[in-house]
Design a protein around this nucleic acid. Structure first.
Lengths: 123, 123
DNA sequence: CGTTCATATAGACGGACTTCGATCTAGGCG
DNA sequence: CGCCTAGATCGAAGTCCGTCTATATGAACG
């Protein structure tokens, strides 16, 4: 989950030193753990194949797509597509529902919006 | 640049076959080149250190920060910080302005918003 | 000019990531 | 039961990435 609380990720830590720039006080970064959590979700999106997968699922009239629909247009092997879909599911950006023999994937719009809001908080 | 034109990234390509799912027609993914361009920008954000850098610069009262302000709180070497800042500048998410001996980095809010809008187009 | 300080670049090393082919799991059907 | 098909998992190969140390660039200043 990205920035799950309403807590601002950043806090100002007042420090007595102004080393190289008086106007800019010492800054406290968000915790490593928090940054790693956010980065892990962005990493899921940071791959051309997964961008294409997200776009294809979004473009699907039913809002869903099964692996067999996605393998062929991308020209990649079925295990590779499964692998990428799993990464997106693990990141919380995709939901998987198995019906019969097929596995159907759909976007999690809330998660995607939350991730987008992280980059454009002031919109 | 992300989705620079107003062209929707996705197009439907009608195909005569409904292989495994009649409701879902064959989908045409966005072009590899387009997807790679987008992925390259997301890849710049998909690292915990760079998330921390972006947050620290955003938290800076002046909206800018120089390398010396950023190196210490993160506990990484100065070349490593310079390296990450370069990646963010190359991705277009940060601007660099050298004044005297110091290099000042600031967020490019437009680019960040555009990237966020890519994930949450319907907000 | 030569020194010092802030930053950038180069090269190296270890780990992570994308992709593949091969195999395993499991539902549908004769 | 036995086969077929959709999908997941495994293990390997090649590439990319983050970090470091060492070094180069370049501005300020005596």
């Amino acid at each position: 989950m990205v920035n799950d609380g309403s807590v601002p990720i950043i806090a100002q830590m007042p420090s007595a030193e102004d080393v190289c720039s008086p106007p800019t006080a010492a800054l406290a970064p968000p915790s490593r753990a928090e940054a790693e959590r956010v980065a892990r979700v962005f990493k899921a999106v940071a791959d051309p194949t997964r961008i294409q997968l997200l776009a294809m699922i979004e473009a699907s009239p039913s809002g869903e797509a099964c692996v067999c629909d996605l393998t062929e247009p991308l020209g990649l092997s079925q295990p590779t597509i499964s692998h990428h879909l799993k990464i997106l599911v693990d990141a919380g950006l995709l939901t998987r529902s198995k019906r019969g023999t097929w596995a159907w994937y759909a976007l999690d719009h809330d998660r995607l919006s939350a991730l987008g809001a992280f980059l454009a908080p002031a919109r």
